[in-house]
């Protein structure tokens, strides 16, 4: 256990824990757009930057991203110092210049008092903030279907060769975890389309409810040793089936 001071309050944390984890546990509101617990911390959005110092640093302080900074004994953290707030404002201002139409960015910027960007609006800016949560989740799940492409200001998230991604199974994790809801997908009858790839959905053989994509089910069945038949009926029908089976057993017990 290590002891640290956060905004004047002494807090205990486990060794090796990242500062942001501790802040979240202590319910201290620090914004972060590129953080997701399912993947390794990344440090791209810089919004979770905090000011740190120690008693023996002779008044020197440093600015670190809390998502990546392992807690240390005696650390003195301020999460909303004037400089830190100014940095967050600047970052949100920069975001607003590039993603002026993203409701999520506008909301967060407004929370920090930025309503209109003070910079030049980036021509053809879209709502992708390049947090790479999508690609990192895709990697963690083992598909590696999409990645960042290019670099610098022109970087984007795209499937390989800008074509239909061969390794995508349509799990939708990329789209569902996108902080700005940028990744598009459509459901149409028994099909899901994402990244221009059309997936057939599994349909419950009893009630007709649609569940995950067939490719996802096949992947799980093949790589995770789950019988494919599990995927053939929906959760509700599974429950009914269980009720029926147990009902049968109970009725035998009653007879006995």
């Amino acid at each position: 256990m290590v002891n640290l001071t956060i905004n004047g309050r002494i807090v205990q944390a486990k060794e090796g824990e990242m500062l942001l984890t501790v802040l979240r546990r202590e319910k201290i509101d620090v914004p972060a757009l590129c953080h997701h617990e399912a993947v390794e911390p990344f440090g791209a959005c810089r919004l979770c930057t905090v000011e740190i110092t120690k008693e023996d640093w002779n008044g020197y302080s440093n600015y670190v991203t809390s998502c990546l900074y392992p807690v240390e004994e005696g650390l003195i953290v301020s999460t909303h110092s004037p400089k830190v707030n100014e940095l967050r404002k600047t970052i949100l201002d920069l975001f607003l210049a590039r993603h002026p139409n993203s409701p999520e960015i506008r909301q967060l910027a407004a929370d920090y008092g930025v309503f209109k960007t003070s910079y030049e609006t980036v021509v053809d800016g879209n709502n992708c903030i390049l947090c790479a949560i999508c690609t990192r989740i895709c990697d963690t799940m083992g598909f590696h279907a999409i990645s960042t492409v290019g670099r610098g200001h022109g970087k984007e998230v795209a499937p390989p060769l800008h074509q239909v991604p061969p390794d995508c199974v349509g799990c939708l994790a990329c789209a569902l975890n996108c902080p700005t809801h940028y990744i598009e997908y459509t459901f149409d009858n028994n099909y899901l389309t994402i990244w221009d790839k059309k997936f057939e959905l599994m349909v419950c053989s009893r009630c007709g409810k649609k569940t995950i994509t067939k490719e996802f089910a096949e992947y799980l069945s093949k790589h995770r040793d789950i019988p494919f038949s599990y995927f053939e009926i929906c959760d509700e029908c599974h429950r009914k089936e269980l009720a029926a089976t147990m009902g049968q057993i109970t009725s035998w017990e009653r007879e006995a």
Binding site: F42, A44, I91, L94, F95, A97, A132, G152, H153, G154
Partner: peptide, 18 residues
């Protein structure tokens, strides 16, 4: 630097651009 920035973090990618 705008050309050479890797594009990972916002201050460098967007800040240098501005």
């Amino acid at each position: 630097l705008v050309n050479e920035s890797c594009g990972k973090c916002v201050p460098c990618r967007e800040g240098l651009y501005q």
